[in-house]
């Protein structure tokens, strides 16, 4: 590659050429295969370096997300060392009692309350949605100011009626502020669609019924959650407790 060519390529890519100069360059590009190859090489190198160094906010957020998921999914399993202990009958009986208490766990009757707590993860770069308002809603939600989050989400849902994420989180704010019927209506809509929030919505539908002391309906919704979905374990925990 001649230096002159390279300099022109860089000026062309950077938009530093005059109009007439650019025209000449583009004409040459159409006929000179070597020049074209050099231009493609330059662009490819530039993109590679960009992916390596741009390290912008979204790239960093993505990598942080991976780090935390890695910790969750690639934990080395700690094998408990098996010990054989000789115990006499009295201890044996006591041990059984303790195990029984742990299973029965009367102090743990609000197991589903612990699941009612969730973080709002808003998605960056979702086309039509107003980003500032979405961010404000997310911040309010995660600061547990559900009334404020609800107020911010309502107009967003109105503007984007097909956005399941917004509808799902609006439902959660209604659930948290005890507007159970409205929450259920939003969860039902989301659950009916082929949405990635489909089973989250089913899960929170069940929690809403539990808040209303309707265990039968709650069970119906928990049983709708299939084994391979993320919510299955939580649903099973609650079903076992009911």
């Amino acid at each position: 590659m001649e230096n002159q060519n390279l300099e022109n390529i860089i000026r062309y890519v950077n938009g530093e050429m005059q109009a007439n100069e650019k025209e000449v360059f583009e004409q040459e590009l159409a006929t000179n295969i070597n020049l074209k190859e050099d231009l493609l090489l330059y662009l490819n190198v530039d993109k590679t370096l960009r992916s390596e160094f741009s390290n912008n906010k979204t790239d960093r957020a993505f990598k942080e997300n991976l780090v935390s998921l890695n910790q969750q999914y690639f934990k080395a399993e700690q094998k408990p060392t098996a010990k054989i202990i000789k115990i006499n009958r009295l201890w044996y009986a006591a041990a059984i009692l303790i195990v029984g208490l742990l299973i029965w766990a009367p102090w743990n009757h609000d197991i589903y309350d612990k699941y009612a707590d969730t973080e709002m993860v808003s998605f960056a770069e979702r086309g039509a949605v107003n980003q500032d308002n979405l961010q404000a809603a997310t911040d309010a939600f995660n600061a547990k100011d559900f009334n404020k989050a609800k107020g911010l989400l309502q107009p967003l849902v109105k503007e984007n009626p097909d956005d399941d994420m917004l509808k799902f989180y609006l439902g959660l704010t209604q659930f948290q502020t005890k507007e159970y019927e409205k929450a259920k209506s939003n969860f039902t809509t989301v659950n009916k669609r082929a949405s990635i929030f489909k089973y989250d919505a089913a899960f929170y539908m069940a929690l809403t019924y539990l808040k209303q002391d309707n265990k039968a309906e709650a069970k119906v919704w928990l049983n709708k959650i299939p084994k391979d979905s993320d919510e299955h374990q939580k649903a099973k925990d609650i079903l076992d407790n009911l």
């Binding site: 993505f62 997300n65 998921l69 999914y73 998605f123 960056a124 979702r126 929030f197 391979d228 993320d230």
Partner: peptide, 22 residues
């Protein structure tokens, strides 16, 4: 989903494939 760091999609990838790779 990866490009937009969509948490649901990224988590789906882990949930579905991490065991196989492990």
């Amino acid at each position: 989903g990866l490009i937009s760091n969509n948490h649901k999609v990224v988590q789906e990838i882990y949930a579905k494939f991490s065991d196989k790779i492990k």
